[in-house]
Structure formats: C-alpha cells, structure tokens
Design a protein around this nucleic acid. Structure first.
Lengths: 210, 210
DNA sequence: TCAAAAGTGTTGAAGATACACCCATGG
DNA sequence: CCATGGGTGTATCTTCAACACTTTTGA
C-alpha cells in the first residue's frame, strides 16, 4: 500500500529539415540543471494517464492534443529505482507526432524548448536518452503495418513529402516509384483537387483517407 | 508531487488441452469478493517494476521467473481514475508465458488459482477483461515477427506441438506443410538427437536455437 | 487391421525489389 | 537554359497459399 510518484513524459516528434526531430526542454531546476529533458510532469489525483500526457504536452510545448489532430500514444513505463535522484519516480512515457504546421500554431512561448534531430541528441537528464530510443524504435516498427506517417504531415501533402517522412523515420532512402505504387495501392490516400504550387513543378496534393 | 498507488498485474498464459489459458485468482477480500482477478499487487518502494512483477508472480502462482525460463514482458499501463473503487490505482500490466511443465513444478499451493481458456473467461474484477484482451492481442501480433511460441513449450518439443501453440494463439488452423517449412527455413529451431516415443509414431524433437 | 499423428513437394498468385528517363516550372 | 523536383512501367525474384498422400506405431 505504498504510494509512489508517478509522472508522464512525452517524446514529441516532428519533421524539420527532412529529419525526424524531438522537442527537448532545458532544465532550470535541479537535478540536472542545464541539461535537456523530455517535457513531462506529475500525474494528478483525478486525471487519466492520457489526460495527464495531453495536459503536460500543452503546458510545456503549447501543442494542443485535445482535438484529434495530434497522435498521442502510450509507449512504456519506466520504473527503475534510482532513475531519478530525488527518489522513487515511476514514469509513464508517451510519444506524440505533430506536423510542422501545428508547431507553428503552438508558438514558441515555451521558451526553453528546442528541437533536436533524433540522431544528434545532446546529453539528456535521467534515462531520457533511452526513452527516446525506445520511441524511435516504436514508430519505425509501426511504419511497417500502419500509417503513422501522416501524423507528421499537414492535412494535405504531396507523395514526395510523405516519402520524406518515411525516409526520415526509417533512416534510409526509398525508391520513388516503388514507394508511390505501394502507398497508392494501399488506398490510404486520396487525391485532392489541388496542386501544390510552391515548388518547381506543381505537385498533386493528397489527403489521408480513413 | 502527488503520490499514487502503483500495482503490477500479470497475465500468465499457458497451453492446456490445446488451448491458450490464463491463470486467475478468486478474490477473498473486497472489492469484487468472489470474482476472479489477475494475480498482482503493490510495487514496493525500492524494487523495479520488472522485479515487482516477478515477485508477485512467484508469491501468487508459485511460478519462478528469476531464472531465465519464464518469458515476462511489460504490456501497458492502465490508470483511469475510477478503475479501482478503493481509490486511484495505476497498474502496470505484464504478461508471462510458461510451459505446462513449469506449472507442474510450481505446484498448486496457490489454492484459489485456476486456469481459464482465453475465449471463455468468467466475469472479472476491475478492468481485467480488457487487460487480458490487450495481452492476447499482443502475443498474436508478436507471433508474426518473433518466436514467442517457444515460451509456452518445454525445452524439447515436436513441430506439431509448436504448431498447436501457434494455432491456439492465433485461433485458427494452420497448414502443416506450410508451417513446417516456414519454421525450418527461419532456422530458429534445431533438431535434437531424440525422438518423442509417446505418441503413435515417433516424432523428431527440436529445441529452440538462439 | 485400424486409428492417429508424422512426414513430405509442387504450383500459382501476390508482393517486393531493382532500375532510368522525360516533363514542367522558376530563377 | 539549367537546376530542381514531379511523374511514370517493366522484368525479376521472393514469399505466401492452396492442396493429398504415404508411413509408423500402439491398441
């Protein structure tokens, strides 16, 4: 009948500069002052774990997961004694996927937050390096049998943008023709009537079809 | 800085009568007196979550997971407020796979424990039905890309026994020739020099090769 | 001699991989 | 006019699915 401290930490991914990146927050209080750490915090008495994750995500990063357009999923629970020098803390880790456009909406008021490429992380507080690796592994596997890729893109996107997402997550180049064939014959995207006019040559915009 | 009750619950699977079965314990104390529930209990101040799961498994079922021959893996953490009428309880669920022979070794001193086929569960306490479904789904998926099946068998086994394990987990019949070819060309089993003499026709015994 | 489980190959379909060129646009 | 990214098809290989009969043994 032993009560323990329970926190949620969130590995927030996005795609920036064609690379998979994670949001980290510089710690202002001990322990690990000055190190970067995952956004997160304590679970309140009367909120679910998912709700706590949503709340912390919003408080610390400005990203709003309460409407359906942020993918948020429980990852794993870390509870080694000694993983937090302040005492026994059990952390339920989550990961979240947001598009570039949602980040901009969220604004940068969480001032000590910055993005880091997953393969170039700084030294992190606690066991957060391990948690991020675990999350990265999870989405890599998930890409094989689901359509998580869309969660990192805005509502409308080109197939090349989707391919870049897959390449960033998998860490390898994909063949353009094979990729397009696979996505199209899976029937999980549908063409919109719009073209992206930004680039050199206008590209067909697609949207995710449930 | 809110402390919460943290428990571990274990979904212990085995294969009995060619069916996937789960160990349940009849509750003697409120709430849910007389209902069946998963074995589990509170996490102590200075033990890891894995250690707590191992300890509870041993205390409540007699199964010893401290040597390597029980497969024990964290499943998911359930923390809805209201899932336990006594108050806020966060449960880190685990699942474990044991062979028939390990059960017999463990003995039946945990007197109010009984096995139930996963597809014929009684009414359960708390949200334990949901936890078992989650665990069942996990091992079904895992069967596609790993070799969890072995964990439900003794060290030496025939290919037909392995096939029965797969069929019990997947809930469908498999083609014998296709199954054997797949397993053999994966190279994850090796033939021993022994034959099983029990049945009608002697069968080659295999063992798992790491 | 019968019942029960062991063991064994082939074919066709579907899915995955490798691979190269032309086109439209903006600078 | 050139650099950039958009867009397209085919041949091959690998993988998966369907399918039936013979053998050994104990009762």
């Amino acid at each position: 009948m032993n009560k323990l401290l329970v926190t949620v930490d969130i590995v927030l991914f996005t795609l920036l500069e064609r690379r998979l990146q994670v949001l980290l927050i510089k710690r202002l209080a001990p322990p690990f002052v000055g190190s970067y750490a995952l956004p997160g915090g304590f679970v309140l008495e009367d909120e679910s774990l998912d709700a706590a994750a949503q709340r912390e995500l919003h408080e610390e990063t400005g990203v709003d997961a309460s409407n359906g357009d942020v993918y948020l999923e429980q990852l794993y629970t870390f509870g080694e004694p000694g993983r937090d020098p302040r005492g026994r803390v059990v952390t339920v880790a989550y990961y979240a996927l947001v598009s570039n456009s949602q980040i901009l909406k969220a604004g940068t008021d969480a001032s000590d937050a910055s993005w880091f490429a997953v393969d170039e992380l700084p030294q992190l507080a606690f066991d957060h390096t391990q948690i991020i690796e675990y999350a990265h592994r999870r989405i890599r596997n998930k890409l094989d049998y689901t359509s998580v890729g869309f969660e990192l893109l805005p509502e409308k996107f080109t197939l090349t943008e989707l391919q870049v997402v897959h390449e960033a997550i998998l860490g390898e180049k994909l063949d353009k023709r094979n990729f397009r064939r696979k996505i199209l014959q899976q029937g999980i995207v549908e063409a919109t009537k719009e073209l992206q006019k930004a680039g050199r040559k206008p590209a067909q915009l697609y949207r995710f079809s449930s």
